[in-house]
Design a protein around this nucleic acid. Structure first.
Lengths: 335, 335
DNA sequence: CTGTTAGCGCGTTCAA
DNA sequence: TTGAACGCGCTAACAG
């Protein structure tokens, strides 16, 4: 290993100039006739041979430096250990690869400082753009993103004060579906279990719930830290009020409240009906299965990736990115 | 945006040479007295001021090119949507950040080609090292890693033919604990549910099971594709044989077999006792809770990161990395 | 003691 | 097909 071989080595070995090697390396794929420069087939072969024999790998650093492009994007999600984001991560990686990009992943853990650190760190790695799930309270970092002029797309949430490129899910519509499903299952006195975190995905779902279920229907807010205890208290109240239907605003609260209710001898789906939000394999354990709202994860990834790469291309062409700030809204489905 | 400001701009603006700026920028942190070069406090202040005012960010590309270091490592896991790897990912990111590195993540989906592609792609990004979970059938890619001379650490599995730096868990010991726990719960006729995938983590657990439970105890192998159907068949056989205890070799099979058994009216933890492997929140749903073997995820991450960074440092100092190929074995615990 | 000059690393690209 | 400038920051050698 030690010294990696450079374009220079290839040139020397093949008895041609550095420039020629560079050219050949970059046109290896362009099989269509009209190449910008012409190289004799034989020379081309020779260069390619030498290159592969010496196992030549161009230095991405040098290339980056010269063309000012890294072909790397940064993706900051909220919590990699939540399957929801795990799937998004996987899909985004797929999309990026398909477009010839590599992904730098980060997990904010819903900590604004950590989020900010990740943004900074990725900026320093010269990522060409971002796809982010802003941690609650990360308004300042988002401002930083806007100010940086780097293309970026926000997913999963929005901040009412900023108009930025986003790919979102119609949470209100989804919640409406969920409630109707729950009522269709016979539930009359329903409640909602949610996070205390004030992010749009949660508040939208709660708002929708309020509108449909009325002002008396309780909404339980689990603190992001110490969720378990919050779930216990919520369960107590649910029992006291004799609710017969629970809607959850997310998968983690679903599971917590289920556990807390079971502990109290409540029979899920018999004593209390449930409809979940986001998948958890816990839903399938019950009979009948707990229906849930499924967000179109692959589409979120595909759309946000396409959006971002479009912005990057536009910027490359010198267009004014700051104009673009459409919000793409996708629909969830009930499973 | 457009043109990012370079060290040159700072130099001009501050009225000093480029070299001086470079020097100041790199010593900002070294508060200890004996700096290699001395700069007047005032000049230093001025440079720092200008730099922050202009919001200067050094180009990582240029730095990389010059020092031949990227401070990026590649991490290839098996499946980001499995919480097991999600947690590992999060912990590794933490460790890397702590050491001043950035992480390139990839998910192999247990596909050898995909795994190979990721390795190649990361190599081209000039990562300084790898932490990988080799997909089943990726022997060739691992050979490639060895041949490349790049530092790397394998986690979660090992391949009997290769002696490489690894951080593993004592799967046999863990399985022994699991079986003893199951027997302690009163199970007499036990079976095991596992993956058909031939990777060491699975085979070790199975081997251990064989040794303790005897040759008659059935082991069910779920195909990696079409797991559900495999689980149904396994459940049928479990019922037919009248087993009263099930050990799982991993979390996904656990959940699948639980679902299949429930469908058949079996009462988990009453008709059949279970002990799981790797956490799933499904375990907590039952009464009493399903005990499970917990692998020390944070330690796996910490140890492998430390191991890798040690290798990178050693290589930096010109030591011969190829010698090092210790296997670190960690212990799991029963919860 | 304080600061500058100049060359380097590696691939890209344009003029010749 | 080639020579040479270029992108950006690092650093050894050198000057006031």
């Amino acid at each position: 290993m030690s010294k990696s071989i450079t374009i220079k080595d290839i040139a020397r070995e093949a008895g041609v100039s550095i420039a020629l090697v560079s050219f050949v390396m970059n046109n290896r794929i362009e099989a269509d006739g009209k190449q910008k420069y012409r190289v004799s087939e034989e020379t081309k072969r020779r260069i390619l041979d030498v290159a592969s024999r010496m196992n030549y790998r161009p230095s991405s650093a040098a290339r980056m430096l010269r063309q000012g492009r890294t072909h790397v994007i940064g993706v900051i999600l909220s919590d990699l250990s939540n399957i929801f984001y795990g799937i998004i991560a996987k899909e985004l990686e797929d999309q990026a690869t398909r477009h010839g990009y590599t992904v730098l992943f980060g997990s904010s853990e819903e900590d604004p400082e950590r989020f900010a650190r990740l943004v900074r760190s990725f900026m320093e790695k010269d990522v060409e753009g971002f796809i982010v799930v802003p941690a609650a309270g990360s308004a300042r970092s988002v401002e930083g993103l806007i100010a940086s002029g780097k293309p970026f797309v926000v997913i999963d949430r929005y901040h009412p004060d900023y108009d930025v490129p986003s790919v979102l899910v119609d949470n209100k519509g989804a919640m409406k579906m969920a409630i109707e499903a729950l009522q269709g299952m016979g539930a009359r006195k329903i409640g909602m279990i949610s996070y205390a975190m004030r992010i749009s995905s949660m508040t939208d779902r709660e708002e929708s719930f309020r509108e449909i279920a009325g002002d008396d229907a309780p909404i339980y807010h689990l603190p992001f830290q110490n969720t378990r205890e919050g779930a216990e208290q919520a369960a107590d109240d649910i029992v006291r009020r004799g609710l017969d239907g629970i809607i959850s605003a997310s998968n983690v609260p679903s599971v917590l409240i289920i556990k807390a209710l079971l502990k109290r001898g409540i029979h899920i789906q018999k004593d209390i009906r449930m409809v979940g939000f986001d998948y958890s394999n816990v839903y399938d354990i019950f009979e009948p299965r707990i229906p849930y709202i499924l967000q179109p994860l692959p589409q979120i990834a595909a759309q946000s990736a396409e959006y971002l790469f479009g912005l990057i291309d536009a910027k490359q062409k010198g267009e004014d990115i700051a104009q673009k700030k459409d919000k793409i809204i996708l629909n969830a489905s009930l499973i």
